[in-house]
Protein backbone atom coordinates (compact mmCIF):
# COMPACT_ATOMS: atom_id res chain seq x y z
CA UNK A 1 0.00 0.00 0.00
CA UNK A 2 1.60 3.20 -1.16
CA UNK A 3 1.14 6.52 0.44
CA UNK A 4 0.67 9.14 -2.25
CA UNK A 5 2.52 11.86 -0.40
CA UNK A 6 5.50 9.83 0.81
CA UNK A 7 5.93 6.88 -1.56
CA UNK A 8 9.42 5.91 -0.42
CA UNK A 9 9.96 6.51 3.30
CA UNK A 10 13.56 5.24 3.21
CA UNK A 11 14.63 7.08 0.05
CA UNK A 12 13.67 10.51 1.43
CA UNK A 13 16.10 10.64 4.39
CA UNK A 14 18.78 8.97 2.26
CA UNK A 15 18.55 11.71 -0.38
CA UNK A 16 18.51 14.37 2.34
CA UNK A 17 21.69 12.92 3.87
CA UNK A 18 23.38 12.78 0.45
CA UNK A 19 22.46 16.43 -0.17
CA UNK A 20 23.86 17.52 3.19
CA UNK A 21 27.07 15.58 2.48
CA UNK A 22 27.35 17.13 -0.98
CA UNK A 23 26.90 20.68 0.29
CA UNK A 24 29.27 19.89 3.16
CA UNK A 25 27.51 22.03 5.72
CA UNK A 26 25.13 21.34 8.57
CA UNK A 27 23.31 24.66 8.32
CA UNK A 28 19.50 24.57 8.73
CA UNK A 29 19.10 25.79 5.16
CA UNK A 30 20.99 22.86 3.71
CA UNK A 31 19.02 20.36 5.82
CA UNK A 32 15.66 21.87 4.85
CA UNK A 33 16.56 21.97 1.16
CA UNK A 34 17.80 18.38 1.42
CA UNK A 35 14.53 17.22 2.98
CA UNK A 36 12.60 19.12 0.33
CA UNK A 37 14.59 17.47 -2.46
CA UNK A 38 14.28 14.09 -0.74
CA UNK A 39 10.53 14.55 -0.69
CA UNK A 40 10.16 15.92 -4.24
CA UNK A 41 12.53 13.65 -6.19
CA UNK A 42 10.81 10.33 -5.27
CA UNK A 43 7.45 11.93 -5.99
CA UNK A 44 8.43 13.03 -9.50
CA UNK A 45 10.32 9.85 -10.37
CA UNK A 46 7.67 7.53 -8.99
CA UNK A 47 7.32 5.57 -12.20
CA UNK A 48 10.95 4.45 -12.09
CA UNK A 49 10.60 2.94 -8.61
CA UNK A 50 7.86 0.35 -8.84
CA UNK A 51 8.63 -1.49 -5.61
CA UNK A 52 8.91 0.02 -2.22
CA UNK A 53 11.91 -1.12 -0.21
CA UNK A 54 10.85 -2.65 3.07
CA UNK A 55 13.22 -3.25 5.92
CA UNK A 56 11.84 -5.83 8.28
CA UNK A 57 14.57 -5.83 10.89
CA UNK A 58 16.73 -2.70 10.76
CA UNK A 59 18.88 -3.91 13.67
CA UNK A 60 19.74 -7.13 11.87
CA UNK A 61 20.73 -5.04 8.85
CA UNK A 62 22.96 -2.87 11.04
CA UNK A 63 24.65 -5.93 12.54
CA UNK A 64 25.05 -7.36 9.03
CA UNK A 65 26.74 -4.16 7.85
CA UNK A 66 29.16 -4.23 10.79
CA UNK A 67 30.00 -7.88 10.08
CA UNK A 68 30.58 -7.02 6.41
CA UNK A 69 32.83 -4.06 7.25
CA UNK A 70 34.95 -6.31 9.45
CA UNK A 71 35.05 -8.94 6.69
CA UNK A 72 36.12 -6.31 4.14
CA UNK A 73 39.16 -5.48 6.27
CA UNK A 74 40.09 -9.15 6.74
CA UNK A 75 39.47 -9.94 3.07
CA UNK A 76 41.68 -7.08 1.97
CA UNK A 77 44.58 -8.26 4.07
CA UNK A 78 44.11 -11.77 2.69
CA UNK A 79 43.94 -10.59 -0.94
CA UNK A 80 46.90 -8.25 -0.45
CA UNK A 81 48.92 -11.17 0.92
CA UNK A 82 47.92 -13.38 -2.02
CA UNK A 83 48.92 -10.70 -4.53
CA UNK A 84 52.28 -10.15 -2.84
CA UNK A 85 52.99 -13.88 -2.70
CA UNK A 86 52.48 -14.09 -6.43
CA UNK A 87 50.36 -15.88 -8.96
CA UNK A 88 51.75 -19.34 -8.26
CA UNK A 89 49.89 -19.65 -4.97
CA UNK A 90 46.36 -18.87 -6.10
CA UNK A 91 43.70 -21.50 -6.57
CA UNK A 92 40.94 -19.93 -8.64
CA UNK A 93 37.59 -21.69 -8.94
CA UNK A 94 34.03 -21.00 -9.98
CA UNK A 95 31.33 -22.04 -7.55
CA UNK A 96 27.58 -21.95 -7.98
CA UNK A 97 25.63 -20.58 -5.04
CA UNK A 98 21.93 -21.52 -5.04
CA UNK A 99 19.88 -18.51 -3.96
CA UNK A 100 17.05 -18.47 -1.46
CA UNK A 101 16.57 -14.71 -1.83
CA UNK A 102 13.99 -13.60 -4.36
CA UNK A 103 13.74 -9.81 -4.11
CA UNK A 104 15.84 -7.53 -6.31
CA UNK A 105 17.32 -5.57 -3.45
CA UNK A 106 18.17 -8.71 -1.49
CA UNK A 107 20.01 -10.28 -4.42
CA UNK A 108 21.91 -7.08 -5.20
CA UNK A 109 22.92 -6.71 -1.53
CA UNK A 110 24.19 -10.29 -1.52
CA UNK A 111 26.06 -9.93 -4.83
CA UNK A 112 27.76 -6.71 -3.75
CA UNK A 113 28.68 -8.19 -0.39
CA UNK A 114 30.22 -11.22 -2.06
CA UNK A 115 32.25 -9.01 -4.38
CA UNK A 116 33.62 -6.94 -1.51
CA UNK A 117 34.51 -9.82 0.80
CA UNK A 118 36.79 -12.83 1.04
CA UNK A 119 38.52 -13.26 -2.29
CA UNK A 120 35.32 -13.73 -4.25
CA UNK A 121 33.60 -11.81 -7.03
CA UNK A 122 30.02 -12.48 -8.03
CA UNK A 123 30.22 -13.11 -11.75
CA UNK A 124 26.93 -14.11 -13.14
CA UNK A 125 23.30 -14.38 -12.13
CA UNK A 126 21.32 -17.08 -13.89
CA UNK A 127 18.36 -15.75 -15.91
CA UNK A 128 15.87 -17.52 -13.62
CA UNK A 129 17.56 -15.86 -10.61
CA UNK A 130 17.96 -19.14 -8.82
CA UNK A 131 21.74 -19.28 -8.66
CA UNK A 132 24.69 -16.95 -8.54
CA UNK A 133 28.04 -17.89 -10.05
CA UNK A 134 30.91 -16.76 -7.85
CA UNK A 135 34.58 -16.67 -8.74
CA UNK A 136 37.00 -17.18 -5.88
CA UNK A 137 40.70 -16.48 -6.09
CA UNK A 138 41.82 -18.98 -3.48
CA UNK A 139 39.28 -21.73 -2.99
CA UNK A 140 40.39 -24.78 -1.04
CA UNK A 141 36.94 -26.23 -0.48
CA UNK A 142 34.11 -25.06 -2.78
CA UNK A 143 31.33 -26.59 -0.67
CA UNK A 144 32.62 -24.86 2.41
CA UNK A 145 32.66 -21.52 0.57
CA UNK A 146 29.03 -21.95 -0.50
CA UNK A 147 28.06 -22.85 3.05
CA UNK A 148 29.87 -19.83 4.47
CA UNK A 149 28.20 -17.45 2.01
CA UNK A 150 24.76 -18.88 2.75
CA UNK A 151 25.17 -18.84 6.51
CA UNK A 152 27.09 -15.63 7.02
CA UNK A 153 25.56 -13.33 4.40
CA UNK A 154 22.38 -14.76 2.99
CA UNK A 155 20.70 -15.75 6.26
CA UNK A 156 20.61 -12.19 7.74
CA UNK A 157 19.54 -10.73 4.36
CA UNK A 158 16.69 -13.22 4.21
CA UNK A 159 15.46 -11.97 7.57
CA UNK A 160 15.72 -8.32 6.51
CA UNK A 161 14.32 -8.24 2.99
CA UNK A 162 12.13 -11.26 2.37
CA UNK A 163 8.41 -11.06 2.91
CA UNK A 164 7.45 -13.66 5.49
Amino acid sequence: MKHWLLPHPILTPTLAIIWVLLVNSLSPGAIILGLLLGWAIPLFTLRFWPDQVRLRKPLTLLRFILVVLYDILVANLAVAWLILRGPRHIEPAFVVVPLSLTTDIGISFLANTISLTPGTVSSWLSPDRRSLVVQGISVQDPDDLVKTIKRRYEAPLLEVFEPC
Binding site: I72, A75, N76, I83, I137
Partner: peptide
Protein backbone atom coordinates in the same frame (compact mmCIF):
# COMPACT_ATOMS: atom_id res chain seq x y z
CA UNK B 1 50.14 -4.89 -8.64
CA UNK B 2 47.44 -7.56 -8.62
CA UNK B 3 46.14 -6.15 -11.89
CA UNK B 4 49.58 -6.30 -13.43
CA UNK B 5 50.89 -9.67 -12.31
CA UNK B 6 47.95 -12.07 -12.02
CA UNK B 7 47.74 -14.68 -14.79
CA UNK B 8 44.12 -14.56 -15.93
CA UNK B 9 41.35 -11.98 -16.12
CA UNK B 10 39.23 -13.36 -13.28
CA UNK B 11 42.12 -13.28 -10.82
CA UNK B 12 43.08 -9.79 -11.96
CA UNK B 13 39.60 -8.62 -11.05
CA UNK B 14 40.25 -9.11 -7.33
CA UNK B 15 43.05 -6.59 -6.86
CA UNK B 16 41.29 -3.47 -8.15
CA UNK B 17 37.88 -4.27 -6.62
CA UNK B 18 39.13 -4.92 -3.12
CA UNK B 19 42.58 -3.51 -2.41
CA UNK B 20 42.26 -0.34 -4.49
CA UNK B 21 38.82 0.48 -3.10
CA UNK B 22 40.01 0.09 0.49
Amino acid sequence: LGLARMPDFYSRLHGPTKATTL
